[in-house]
């Protein structure tokens, strides 16, 4: 049944019609396979962090206290707000409002920049203290996990920028806006992953 639906999806000229009929997720289906792959990788990372911590509880608890939770709060608020702005962008284009969609996406991108700046300041602080991947097991996980996510934020922003520029040039409409929903789905995945990363690395002890 699932295979038949996949064939229907790929052979149909108007994918949105099929999506409404069969309740496919928003955006291009390919991005959802990509999202599942990304979630799998982050899931393995999170499990590896938690099980490694189980054998090094004192070390993890000690060095976790050195992290800046206020910066993590700002970054979490920035990503949630950015995701909400992307929701507004999708709503705007569904209403055939290309200009509104463009402006909401710009606002989302601005919050993405906030995230990158704050995270960059955190990295600068750690590196100025001589902390790196080989300092200890906790910092190895902290730096690799957060930098892996950091790169996903950058990729998400590139996607959102491309979508925003196309929206500005009138490339989307209420009838055809698969690209906006595709970019939005990826960005929400970046937000979703951070929702687990923030408490796991910064708070749980």
């Amino acid at each position: 049944m699932c295979i038949i639906r996949l064939i229907q999806f790929w052979t149909c000229e108007n994918r949105e019609t099929i999506m409404e009929k069969n309740n496919w997720p928003p955006g291009d289906l390919v991005i959802w396979f990509f999202i599942l792959a990304e979630l799998l990788v982050f899931g393995v990372f999170f499990a590896a962090y938690a099980f490694t911590r189980a054998n090094n509880v004192e070390l993890f608890n000690e060095y976790q206290l050195h992290l800046d939770r206020n910066a993590a709060l700002i970054n979490t608020v920035a990503l949630i707000t950015s995701s909400y702005f992307v929701v507004r962008a999708v709503a705007a284009i569904r209403d055939d409002n290309s200009k509104g969609c463009f402006h909401w996406l710009l606002a989302a991108l601005f919050m993405g920049v906030v995230f990158l700046v704050v995270k960059g300041m955190e990295y600068h602080h750690h590196f100025s203290l001589g902390i790196n991947l080989s300092t200890n097991t906790f910092y190895m996980f902290y730096l690799s996990l957060t930098f892996f996510h950091f790169l996903h934020v950058i990729l998400g922003m590139i996607i959102l920028l491309a979508v925003a520029l196309k929206a500005r040039s009138g490339g989307y409409s209420a009838a055809e806006h698969t690209g906006v929903e595709t970019g939005a789905s990826y960005w929400h995945m970046v937000d979703l992953v951070w929702m687990i990363l923030f408490p796991l690395v910064y708070v749980m002890r």
């Binding site: 309740n23 997720p25 992307v86 929701v87 789905s185 979703l192």
Partner: peptide
């Protein structure tokens, strides 16, 4: 709290609440 937040993002922001079946 984190899992609830994740589910809310999936359901409402990603729009999966409106999706039936596998996805």
């Amino acid at each position: 709290f984190a899992l609830i937040k994740g589910q809310l993002i999936g359901d409402y922001f990603m729009g999966l609440k409106q999706v039936s079946g596998f996805w």
